[in-house]
């Protein structure tokens, strides 16, 4: 089992948090995982991509080189990179609340979801990343939904307990949207 993922968005949208949730969940499922991030001067609003490789064997190259089988584009400015970064047969998850004119996918599948709008309906746009993560889990079976819910409880439970229910609802909503 080997998945190469790229989680992209604008700084503040939580693409790196999505990646971290996947990594922590993968460890819970006994998998190996490696994460690299675009490396530079970080700021809110700038492009941000976290690359994650999940495998049941020791991971060689930690670098995702335009060969992601799972790509997520939360924002317009990074969409082109994600579109180019998907390997044939892979899946691109596009946030159509922000990406206005998604390209025509050839050789790979594109899942179009207005996750920012869905998040607003759930209470806050800030959980758009978790809606999208739920969709990724539902579509690809990358990890079990329950595993990531457990990660959410452990990550937010101690300091921000009121965020647990919101994020789990967001995950489940995204999961259900692709089922």
């Amino acid at each position: 089992m080997l998945h190469k993922c790229m989680f992209s968005g604008s700084g503040g949208q939580g693409s790196a948090l999505m990646a971290k949730m996947v990594c922590l969940g993968a460890i819970k499922e006994g998998l190996k995982v490696v994460m690299t991030q675009t490396y530079g001067i970080e700021q809110r609003g700038g492009d941000s991509t976290a690359f994650v490789i999940v495998s049941d064997e020791p991971i060689g190259s930690p670098i995702v080189e335009n060969d992601a089988d799972i790509a997520v584009a939360l924002s317009q400015s990074i969409y082109g990179n994600c579109f180019e970064g998907v390997v044939p047969g892979g899946t691109l998850f596009t946030n159509t609340s922000i990406v206005e004119e998604p390209g025509d996918a050839e050789g790979f599948e594109q899942v179009l979801l207005p996750v920012s709008d869905t998040a607003v309906e759930l209470g806050t746009v800030r959980c758009a990343n978790m809606v999208m993560l739920g969709a990724v889990l539902g579509k690809t079976g990358l990890l079990k939904l329950e595993t990531v819910e457990e990660v959410v409880r452990e990550s937010f439970g101690a300091k921000k307990p009121k965020l647990v229910d919101l994020n789990i609802e967001a995950l489940r909503t995204g999961f259900a949207a692709v089922k």
Partner: peptide
């Protein structure tokens, strides 16, 4: 520095 900044299990 790339390996040093890589995060992994």
């Amino acid at each position: 520095g790339v390996s040093a900044q890589t995060t992994e299990s």
